[in-house]
Write a protein that binds this DNA or RNA. Sequence first.
RNA 1: GCCGAAGUGGCGGAACUGGUAGACGCGCACGACUCAAAAUCGUGUUCCUUCGGGAGUGAGGGUUCGAUUCCCUCCUUCGGUACCA
Length: 847
Amino acid sequence: MRYDFVEIEKKWRKYWAANNTFRADNKSSKPKFYVLDMFPYPSGQGLHVGHPLGYIASDIYTRYKRLRGFNVLHPMGYDAFGLPAEQYAIQTGQHPAITTEDNIERYRTQLELLGFSFDWEREVRTCEPGYYKWTQWIFMQLFKSWYNKKTDKAEPIDALIEALSKSGTAGIDAHTSEVMEFTAAEWIAKSEHEKQEALSNYRLAYLSEAYVNWCPELGTVLANEEVKDGLSERGGFPVERRMMKQWLLRITAYSDRLLSGLDKIEWSEALKEMQKNWIGKSKGASMLFSVDGSDEKIKVFTTRPDTVFGATFMVLAPEHDLVEQICTEDRKEAVDDYVEQTKKRSERERMADVKQVSGEFTGAWAIHPFSSEKIPIWISDYVLLGYGTGAIMAVPSGDQRDWEFATHFDIPIVPVVSNSDPSKGANEDKDGVMINSDFLDGLKIPDAINTMIDRLEKDNTGEARTNYKLRDSVFSRQRYWGEPFPIYYKDGMPYVLEENELPLELPEVDKYLPTETGDAPLGRAKSWNSEDGHPLDLNTMPGWAGSSWYYLRYMDPGNTDALASKEAIDYWQNVDLYIGGAEHATGHLLYVRFWTKFLHDLNIVPFDEPMKKLVNQGMILGPGGEKMSKSKGNVINPDDLVVKYGADTLRMYEMFLGPLQDAKPWDTHGIEGVFKFLNKLWKLYDGVEDSEPHQLDLTTLHKTIKKVQSDIENLSFNTSVSAFMICVNELSQSNCNSKSILSDLAIIVSPFAPHIAEEIWEKLGNKESISFAAYPGYDEEYLQQDTYVYPVSFNGKVRFKIELSVELSTAEIESEVLEHDISKKWLDGSPPKRVIVVPQRIVNVVI
RNA sequence: GCCGAAGUGGCGGAACUGGUAGACGCGCACGACUCAAAAUCGUGUUCCUUCGGGAGUGAGGGUUCGAUUCCCUCCUUCGGUACCA
């Protein structure tokens, strides 16, 4: 009988849907396992062959785990809010919900064609009110929380308010935007407006005037990770810096936990490294420098406090608050000009001429804290306002950028570490001893750093300090197609809605564009007010809001009382295996960890890392080795291949292409080999008999079970496909027709090619789906061999092979080998210098 | 620049903790079946060779009886990041 994949696949797709075969229960006596794919944004293009790669891998793993007796949660959904649908809406006037719905339908059809064992009853869509109610709810909790450094977790703001009214800021150690100090009396005396203002300094979701990446073309702000080389990631439009009032999330409160948490999760080193760099922890000290003839002090952050005796000037970021105050009259014009210029320049331009040294002298002088010498204060855009304190002590002998600046403006360079050569460049190495450094002279650098920090703390002019590159995340977008903020304004201050007012649904608007007055699109909505008439926030949340907790919603997608029930969360716990692209390294994958830690602090989830193990699938490139894209016209559509070869062939071929994690070019020709393999497999089942299995066939089977099992556990699917091919070749060769062997083969193939496996399984007389069969064990007994063919090499080169019993001792093997005619030829009468015998491996004769 | 990953036949790729390099598949060549073609099956396929062998896993060196695997130097490609003090 012919392998009629069209009929077979249609039949089993229907069967699985009708029987709800892959429904996962929230209660089970079986151990749980959670396998998750990064859910897709349903774009108008549909899927190309690159998308299913990860889904196929996770589906194989899922089906394997089921066969091993696990209750597996394997859901799928859609990251449905986003820019493309909105851009389309602006162009055509069609509501983004309609576009999104259509695209989702298309995705669903394509996904179903591939035979994934998703529990479709758990599908989620981030754009549905029933879903985003809980995205809004989490935001609300962030707004109502502050970060207590003493307990190292988020706590309710109400408790903070109570503490403030009892004893002011005394005894409170919070993660804040700026340090605040006031007494209980002062707190009580504050107006409501002032209180709210003060509280926003503590809240984990707060409004702030901040420099943001503004994209005029898209009409919205972007997060740092949505900007690539000064252009928007989506669309490639220019991005400029602009001061705007925005919602921010205080992710920086979690910097340390986000960093240390990496040690306990199984993610690739590359990815952990990216997150580490993004968080960018560096240890050093903060130091105060007095300004000559002023009460102002300049606070700097440095990782090298030991080099302070080499500090020959100071540099402030052009936007630094002190610039205006300390700038002298004669320098004012030049300085103002420079500041103006910096503001105008976009990120992109600033990046383009990194090598260009520029700056202006403010006319002011700082007093060196140890030598009491006067050193000039400059401004330059190589010092960034957002990092450290926005000011540095410049040590041209120890920092290359300072060196270039000093050389350019002819500022003295004083070496402070032995083996420095100031005429050539800065010495940034951390070996050598201190020179020209008063009480530090002769100390090694690490000792000098500690000595200096002790001294600073004693003198009260500085302290040890840890700094992070990580910034609080801008959380508002001036767009329509996203989650509205559950926020209204009273007296200009933000307040949250009541929980029972959620979800705050997206209003209808006449156009998906900003208003004439420049307000975000929600400004077009009629009566966009709270129930008591206060205006609602006009922003919407960014794309990553909904994806930061979706893995929890799958556990209990219909719940209307909570984001998921306690029972469901306690049962499923965190994700055991997460598969998706590495492009989300510093976006989604950081935010989902942040939100999980926050929900952990709120006692909503018992774990504080969302994904125990994460694997990044590599990209499938076009046949030429380029990225697949519509514009290049090299997109391979999976639907066409399914029509021609069937889903089982496509699934196996995608796995066969190469290691899951590697990028690899697509070559449609190769699919024939896998298709032939499935045909051969199918043929094996003609004339199956209940006969006694042949020894050789048992060896073939058990070797394959062993190989495939370890491959799946290591996510090495390409080698299991090879193993199946070898197995089927061998069984065909020996005309195997043993039912027991062929039944086991069907089970181990089923995670890879589920449709054909179901069909075979049914033909073998089984009534239940193969999905819940028991994975066969392998027996080492069948893998034992009586003899082993030794490759015999002379000086490392293989010259002949000899089959010997595995019972032989090393000495016996040696003499058997040396007796061989070819050995005699190579030895040519003289005795070997040495003979190495590795049992069941090799024999090497040294001559 | 810095960080990370990777370089193996014509191509995708195998090779467990150092032990037969090139499994499996594609492609190609030849053969069988066929009036013919497709499909299918079989054989061969790293390169050079005076048919004894020799060379060979990006390049060069090292450790070892033995290196794709370990160590050092360098080159190339891809991904990330970029004045982070």
